[in-house]
Design a protein around this nucleic acid. Sequence first.
DNA 1: ATAATTCCTATTGAAAAGATAGGAATTACG
DNA 2: CGTAATTCCTATCTTTTCAATAGGAATTAT
Lengths: 133, 133
Amino acid sequence: MIVSTRGRYALRILTELAAREESASLRDVAQKQAIPFKYAESIMRSLVKAGFVKSTRGKNGGYSLTRPPEELTLAEVLRVAEDSLAATDCTGRKEAECPNAATCPSLPVWRALDETVYAFLSQYTLLDLMPKA
Amino acid sequence: MIVSTRGRYALRILTELAAREESASLRDVAQKQAIPFKYAESIMRSLVKAGFVKSTRGKNGGYSLTRPPEELTLAEVLRVAEDSLAATDCTGRKEAECPNAATCPSLPVWRALDETVYAFLSQYTLLDLMPKA
DNA sequence: ATAATTCCTATTGAAAAGATAGGAATTACG
DNA sequence: CGTAATTCCTATCTTTTCAATAGGAATTAT
């Protein structure tokens, strides 16, 4: 699956953050979006690491976006949240495993497919997913 | 995953069939392509059902394509072999399960993504995957 | 009859995805 | 201070999906 639950959760968390002025606690955000809090935490770790959000620790801490929502594409977010957007193992994390890569007639197709998907998802930003708009 | 092992096996089986004049037994084809025979059988069932190949039963039986390879697109084959090419559960077999479908701002994006993927894979046919060419 | 095949159903095993648990580190605020 | 609320970290558990296997029935050329 290219866009799994994890990726969709990430998008919902980010749009929820985008909808708020100040930094928000994950507890609030997760509850509002009906996302399991602990699962949300593991997603946040990826998003912080990627630099899409910044965090404030301690009481009254929370998360906030580091860019305006119209500058965060779905492609960027999903690639981080899903760990890979590859349409097939042949172009994903297991890429190096195939001994036939050099002569495989399908491999160029999968690579081109990945590019097509990435380009498509680069057309949309968080702003496109915000309710009000 | 959009294109999993099952889909890639299907393509290899079909190109192997395309490379032969007469109908071929699955035992031969699977062995040639290093695909587990019993797993190949389950894939063939889908391909027969979809009408991409016809089978002859009994001794000296086997499978053969019902169309020339240049008329079988990857999109068609993969959709059948994978059961669905949907990039997300929201547009796949579980589509009906989401109560927020009516207002979900992401759903149109997933639908458009699926169309993009399908259109892309429709550009290629079995012929593009044949070694000799 | 026999052997080789497709066809069918069920089960098992392995891997990935989703979710949960417990607690350490940090920080605002009384 | 000390407490409460938060992010951060590691580990585990559960569920689902995917890949593969097993056993045999039905069919057909020779």
